[in-house]
Amino acid sequence: MSAMKLKKGDTVKVIAGKDKSKEGKILSVNKKNNTVLVEGINMVSKHTKPSAANQAGGIVEQEAPIDASNVMYVSGGKVTRIGYEIKDGKKVRVAKSTGKVID
């Protein structure tokens, strides 16, 4: 398995599945399962019991994880792959299409 090149806070575009062509920000990354949780993408209905935090309970809409292979990083409004380069003795992420340093 290759390294996960996406990080929390990255803006990504969905390239496959029911939410194809939608964009959102990554809320969390699960490297073990190779999945990401993207804001407003892959929404599912979850039935919850009443609790101290949620007095009413009922049906709640929330994001479900999506496979990392189904999203691409967005740089300057266009999707791009991510590579790594050594700059000033540090390993940095680089957008393949533009060559710009991401972080």
Rank of each mutant, 00 (worst) to 15 (best):
residue 2 S to R: 14
residue 2 S to T: 14
residue 3 A to L: 14
residue 5 K to L: 12
residue 6 L to T: 09
residue 6 L to H: 05
residue 7 K to T: 08
residue 8 K to E: 14
residue 9 G to E: 04
residue 9 G to M: 09
residue 10 D to V: 02
residue 11 T to H: 06
residue 11 T to P: 03
residue 12 V to Y: 06
residue 12 V to R: 04
residue 12 V to F: 05
residue 13 K to D: 04
residue 15 I to A: 06
residue 15 I to N: 02
residue 16 A to S: 10
residue 17 G to E: 01
residue 18 K to S: 08
residue 19 D to R: 08
residue 20 K to M: 04
residue 20 K to T: 07
residue 20 K to G: 02
residue 21 S to T: 08
residue 21 S to V: 05
residue 22 K to R: 09
residue 22 K to V: 01
residue 23 E to A: 05
residue 25 K to H: 04
residue 25 K to N: 08
residue 26 I to Q: 02
residue 27 L to T: 10
residue 30 N to Q: 02
residue 31 K to I: 09
residue 32 K to W: 01
residue 33 N to S: 15
residue 34 N to M: 09
residue 34 N to K: 11
residue 35 T to G: 08
residue 35 T to R: 03
residue 36 V to F: 07
residue 38 V to S: 00
residue 42 N to P: 07
residue 42 N to H: 05
residue 44 V to G: 05
residue 44 V to H: 05
residue 45 S to M: 02
residue 45 S to N: 11
residue 45 S to T: 03
residue 46 K to V: 13
residue 47 H to L: 13
residue 48 T to N: 13
residue 48 T to A: 09
residue 49 K to D: 13
residue 50 P to S: 15
residue 50 P to T: 13
residue 51 S to L: 14
residue 51 S to P: 12
residue 52 A to I: 14
residue 52 A to D: 15
residue 53 A to I: 14
residue 53 A to M: 14
residue 54 N to A: 14
residue 55 Q to L: 15
residue 55 Q to I: 15
residue 56 A to S: 14
residue 58 G to R: 12
residue 59 I to N: 12
residue 61 E to W: 03
residue 61 E to A: 02
residue 61 E to R: 07
residue 65 P to K: 01
residue 65 P to M: 05
residue 66 I to D: 04
residue 67 D to I: 04
residue 67 D to W: 01
residue 68 A to Q: 04
residue 70 N to M: 10
residue 70 N to H: 00
residue 71 V to M: 05
residue 73 Y to G: 01
residue 73 Y to P: 00
residue 73 Y to S: 06
residue 73 Y to R: 10
residue 74 V to Q: 01
residue 75 S to C: 14
residue 77 G to V: 06
residue 79 V to G: 07
residue 80 T to S: 15
residue 80 T to I: 03
residue 81 R to K: 12
residue 81 R to I: 00
residue 82 I to F: 06
residue 83 G to I: 08
residue 84 Y to Q: 08
residue 85 E to N: 11
residue 86 I to N: 12
residue 88 D to P: 00
residue 89 G to P: 01
residue 93 R to M: 06
residue 93 R to S: 06
residue 95 A to M: 01
residue 95 A to S: 12
residue 95 A to H: 09
